[in-house]
Amino acid sequence: MNEHQLKLDIARAQLGTATELFIRDRDPISVQVLACGACELLESVGQMRNADILSALIKRLHPDLKPSGIPHLRNKFWNAMKHFYNADKKTVREDTELLAAFSDAQNDVVLWEGWHDYMALGMPLPIEAQVLQVWYFTVNEDKLAPDVDRESYRKFFPNIRAAERTEQKRRLRRAVEKFRKDRVLMADPKTEARPLMNRRP
């Protein structure tokens, strides 16, 4: 197994676990840490393979944007969660205000990005990730391009933007359960059949 594939497999394990926790509405901090770790690995593999990962697409649209700017925005909560000191290894970070602003909603975009880059690397998506992508754009319609038909998303999750977060997540779980039973979707080569989490002992 080459280094690229090994890192891709590690990213898939992190992203799968993060997504399962997210769908179950559990442990948002672990979701953030795992998903950001996966995104960092997927971004690096994507750069080595010259794939159309999210950062590459953004760079083409905004060539003046510094390459460090994209992961900086994605990783601001993750860095606060994993580091005690600043870069000098002596000064204690001041992250109280930032972390007070963290919520489960911060996980929406990082999970979407992770699965986007996983797919950009030519990998099939688990049914949970496919449902999550639709759910993400229905809950966050402002992320859609102006010319995208919003009704094509809304039909899967009617009026979900008006619902409380717990209800939004409950409807996500229900949709995952429903589409797991769709034999056509599950048999499609674009659907990855293995479980989200590695259940081997």
Rank of each mutant, 00 (worst) to 15 (best):
S152R: 14
E177R: 04
G69L: 11
K89L: 15
R74F: 14
V184M: 06
L65H: 06
G114V: 00
Q5T: 13
I29F: 02
K7P: 03
G37C: 06
D142T: 14
K143S: 09
V110G: 02
L73R: 13
L15A: 13
P28D: 08
A175V: 00
E40H: 12
Q133R: 15
R26A: 11
T191C: 12
L42C: 01
A80V: 07
V134Q: 05
S152F: 07
R200N: 11
L196Q: 09
A51W: 00
R173P: 01
E141W: 10
M119S: 09
V92P: 02
M1T: 13
Q130S: 05
L132M: 14
R49T: 09
M197P: 03
V148M: 11
K76E: 12
E40C: 08
R49C: 11
G114N: 00
A87R: 06
A38Q: 00
L21F: 01
P195S: 01
H116W: 09
N107T: 06
K143D: 15
L98E: 08
F22P: 00
R183L: 12
Q5D: 10
R154I: 04
D108M: 07
L185Q: 12
R180V: 03
D104H: 07
T166Q: 12
V134N: 09
L73E: 11
K143A: 13
N50G: 09
